[in-house]
């Protein structure tokens, strides 16, 4: 069961490997270290300064894309152009905002010959922050109470429904803890300016944040799962360092969710463990998270497994991982040529 005899062309987005990084470069590291696949990596960038575009050891060729907010049509048009030059075998999107656009286009992508391994639109919608209370009821999972707001005036009534502090969250990204209405208003405006409406406000659950990275095969099986605790969180809410855990309840919860929802693709569960040792689900990210390389290092090369699933190969679930494996995130000043910046910013490819 190997695809080594052929070099695959794999397009990967989320190559913004900055201080709060996208998952692209960690995913690529997993693919580069695979002994089952050999890949030429196409970086999908949205901005001129996404580091991955300049990291030539990781990314063989980078292309700029229009944002998914420009619509499916212009997104596909650009992808067709890239595909005509590169013949993409597998596309791994790493931004939440791309998923909707790509799920809607899955049939077209398949016809083009581009394989993906994405959740279904129904799975994607169901786990949306705004739908989490229903999700919890449906699958018997403890979730944080939340409300969906479509205008700032709705905030005035939030006090009747939950107590401060509350967590103010964007449709795709950003989450801030607000201790009073005034703060909540500021965050509402800040997030909605960037990600649009609605805004989700969530009950703040006290406890320790723990996370699970997982990969589902779309038939209810968990191909891999690694639980982790962030050892320190940056002021942007991202992990500074983290360590893999041995935790049966987290693993059981993950398998329960995977089994019940038949999740297809990568996933990250954000959980809070309260003082009473309850696990609250606060968010499901519908993709592999930025700390995916920790799972690779702990023995589960999930990016590799995801590519093989996308190619339709039978993939055996990972049986184990190293407990106590740590990562510490660091930054590094890469030296770049102005010529390359010019190339990417004026021609859209590098």
């Amino acid at each position: 069961m190997t695809t080594l005899d052929k070099t695959l062309t794999i397009a990967v987005s989320g190559i913004n490997n900055i201080d709060s990084p996208g998952p692209g470069i960690p995913v690529i590291r997993g693919l580069r270290e695979s002994d089952k696949i050999r890949a030429r990596i196409i970086g999908i960038a949205y901005e001129n300064l996404e580091p991955g575009a300049y990291m030539h050891d990781h990314v063989d060729k980078a292309y700029k894309m229009p944002y998914p907010s420009d619509g499916v049509e212009s997104y596909l048009e650009r992808l067709r152009y890239i595909h005509s030059r590169e013949h993409i075998d597998v596309l791994i999107p790493n931004f939440d905002s791309e998923l909707f656009t790509l799920m809607k286009s899955e049939k077209i992508l398949t016809e083009m010959g581009i394989r993906t391994f994405l959740p279904t639109l129904a799975q994607f919608e169901e786990r949306h922050k705004a739908n989490l209370p229903d999700y919890g009821r449906k699958y018997g999972v403890l979730v944080a109470n939340s409300e969906t707001l479509t205008s700032i005036a709705d905030l005035n009534h939030i006090r009747e429904k939950m107590e401060f502090p509350i967590v103010v969250k964007g449709k795709f990204y950003d989450a801030y803890i607000a201790y009073d209405l005034e703060q909540a208003r500021i965050y509402f405006n800040r997030i909605s300016a960037k990600w649009g409406l609605p805004i989700v406000v969530q009950e703040f659950i006290r406890g320790t944040e723990v996370n699970v990275i997982a990969l589902g095969d779309g038939r209810g099986n968990t191909i891999g799962a690694v639980p982790m605790r962030k050892q320190y969180i940056t002021d942007k809410g991202k992990a500074w360092g983290g360590i893999t855990l041995a935790d049966d309840t987290m693993m059981e919860l993950t398998q329960k969710i995977m089994h019940a929802t038949k999740w297809r693709g990568g996933m990250e569960l954000e959980l809070i463990r309260t003082k009473k040792d309850e696990l609250y689900l606060i968010e499901i990210n519908p993709r592999l998270p930025a700390w995916v390389y920790l799972a690779v290092a702990a023995g589960q090369n999930l990016p590799e497994a995801l590519v093989r699933l996308a190619l339709g190969e039978a993939v055996q679930p990972f049986a184990r991982y190293d407990v106590g494996k740590m990562f510490i995130r660091y930054s590094y000043d890469m030296i770049c040529e102005l010529r390359e910046f010019e190339q990417l910013s004026t021609h859209g490819e590098l």
């Binding site: 102005l338 910046f341 010019e342 910013s345 004026t346 021609h347």
Partner: peptide, 12 residues
């Protein structure tokens, strides 16, 4: 190609 770099400000 129409790319302009201003070395005194760093703007392009």
């Amino acid at each position: 190609t129409g790319f302009v770099f201003d070395p005194s400000t760093g703007d392009s």
